[in-house]
């Protein structure tokens, strides 16, 4: 059974302008959550906005029973969530969706843009805790330096990272995907990416050329998050549609029909 509960807000703080980390007391969800999966959150008394919002898991502490998400305030749903102070409750259900699969090769490359970074941080922490020796490199992008998130957690997990910003205020000036081709040189790698669709499209193009196994964690507006409404579909290579929520959110890059993506 998928846990659904009224979860108490334990902590809620701003990590970057308009970016917040929300930590919930949600032991059954925290215990089951795996990197790549997401949770649905909704204010208890809200009919406007009506629908829950999907958030990828940023951190899950199964011992402490806490679950964290990192989000950016972009609209009414996240704006409403922002108003939840510690001691207040939200309705939470999950974990939902599939998870990242274990890497092939000797190097793991994580490519994250903006609020696409959180699931990759969770994955990096779990991979770094494995007894298998592997090199993990994270490429993290944002519009400007102050919007780069997850770097402290990556440092703590001893993950090497490089940054890119649109305005050059931190790291490489340009797209985060500019850093990818060189990072793929030398060793067999597996790429995991999450971020805006143009970034994912660029990642897919680069890694298809190098035949590098690549998994993308996709984002889509959802109504239900559990596979029932068929609202969050993406075109699948070979025809038909896949549900981001329940066939994903993690997809091999080659399974997406990029020619039909908006």
């Amino acid at each position: 059974m998928i846990p659904i509960l009224e979860a108490e807000v334990l902590d809620h703080y701003e990590v970057a302008p308009e970016h917040f980390v929300l930590t919930l007391d949600a032991p059954p969800i925290a215990e089951q959550a795996r990197p790549g999966q997401f949770v649905m959150l909704r204010a208890l008394d809200a009919w406007d906005p009506l629908l829950p919002r999907a958030f990828s898991v940023f951190h899950a502490d199964s011992e402490g029973g806490t679950l964290s998400v990192l989000y950016r305030v972009v609209g009414r749903g996240t704006g409403r969530l922002r108003g939840h102070e510690p001691g207040m409750y939200v309705r939470a259900w999950g974990p939902l969706g599939n998870q990242f699969r274990l890497p092939e090769g000797e190097r793991v490359v994580l490519v994250g843009g903006g609020v696409g970074v959180p699931p990759l941080v969770f994955w990096a922490e779990r991979l770094a805790a494995l007894a298998v020796p592997m090199e993990i490199v994270a490429l993290i992008g944002a519009q400007r330096g102050e919007l780069l998130v997850g770097l402290e957690q990556l440092k703590r997990a001893r993950v090497t990272f490089r940054c890119a910003t649109d305005d050059g205020s931190a790291g490489h000036r340009g797209y985060v995907t500019d850093l990818l081709p060189r990072t793929l040189e030398g060793k067999r790698a597996t790429v995991y990416a999450c971020g805006p669709m143009p970034m994912l499209r660029a990642v897919a193009r680069i890694t298809e050329a190098t035949e590098t196994p690549t998994e993308l964690a996709l984002e889509a507006p959802m109504a239900c998050g559990v596979g029932a409404c068929l609202g969050c579909t993406i075109p699948r290579r070979g025809g038909g549609y896949a549900r981001v929520c329940s066939d994903g959110p993690v997809f091999p890059a080659r399974d997406v029909d990029w020619s039909l993506m908006p």
Binding site: L50, P221, A223, C229, L230, C232, P235, Y241
Partner: peptide, 23 residues
Amino acid sequence: RPGNPDVRIAETPAGMLNAIGLQ
């Protein structure tokens, strides 16, 4: 039926619009 191309749903005040297309 494969259903309609994106975008299939839109949230509206206390409601939602859907155009799934009978997938």
